[in-house]
């Protein structure tokens, strides 16, 4: 565990809490892509199956349980409790275009052709693109609430910090995992355009609004 990973995990946790809190306090999930949340639910489920098969540390297990629980809670709030506020007309990204290639790629490029390993690989590939329905929704409506922007920023920072973590681990521990690194770079790059808007607009007190 190094400082980059710890800060990355904290940022990840913060993103999830910001989102849950926003939905709970406003009693609404307007502006949030349910499809991205379903994809994240699938990502956590397929990656954290190893909770049963391998123990790494108490920290690791607790965080996994928290991520799973928070993800399912978000999905429940969106699709059951506050279903009426879900903006499905603007959430039109076709997720099969992400899931099918992620399955295919996981079957083709993996560390080992075993069920748990392929599910892990699938979750890494899917996570890298799982935010696309949300970004698509923001681009479709042309705007995002500040709180939604904070959520997206924290979620983007998380994978960015993981990149620093991987650079550190390569240098300090001689450890690297190419699948995670390549997918992590893709994931971080997808947030770059958003980071620019966040810094130039949201941090200056303006609403995130795309040019018409």
């Amino acid at each position: 565990m190094n400082i980059f990973r710890l800060l990355g995990d904290i940022s990840h946790l913060l993103a999830i809490i910001i989102l849950l809190r926003k939905i709970w306090m406003s009693r609404s999930c307007a502006g949030i892509s349910g499809k991205s949340q379903l994809l994240f639910g699938l990502v956590y489920t397929t990656r954290y199956l190893d909770l049963i098969t391998s123990y790494i540390s108490l920290y690791n297990s607790v965080m996994k349980v928290v991520f799973l629980a928070a993800s399912y809670a978000t999905i429940y709030l969106m699709y059951v409790k506050f279903k009426a506020t879900y903006d499905h007309n603007h959430d039109t990204f076709r997720i099969e275009f992400l899931v099918v290639p992620a399955v295919a790629l996981a079957l083709l490029i993996n560390h080992d052709f075993q069920v748990v390993e392929i599910l892990w690989t699938f979750s890494i590939y899917l996570e890298s693109v799982a935010i696309l329905p949300q970004l698509f929704m923001v681009s479709k409506t042309g705007e995002a609430e500040s709180i939604t922007s904070h959520y997206l920023f924290a979620l983007g920072v998380y994978r960015g910090l993981y990149l620093l973590n991987w650079i550190y681990r390569f240098w300090a521990e001689d450890h690297y995992d190419l699948i995670a690194i390549v997918a992590g770079v893709v994931q971080t790059v997808l947030y770059c355009d958003f980071f620019y808007l966040y810094i130039t607009k949201v941090l200056r007190g303006k609403k995130l609004q795309l040019p018409a």
Binding site: D50, I56, M63, D112, E117, N165, H175
Partner: peptide, 10 residues
């Protein structure tokens, strides 16, 4: 050394 299967990250 590459520790490919040590999925010790979240």
């Amino acid at each position: 050394a590459v520790v490919a299967f040590a999925h010790d990250e979240l």
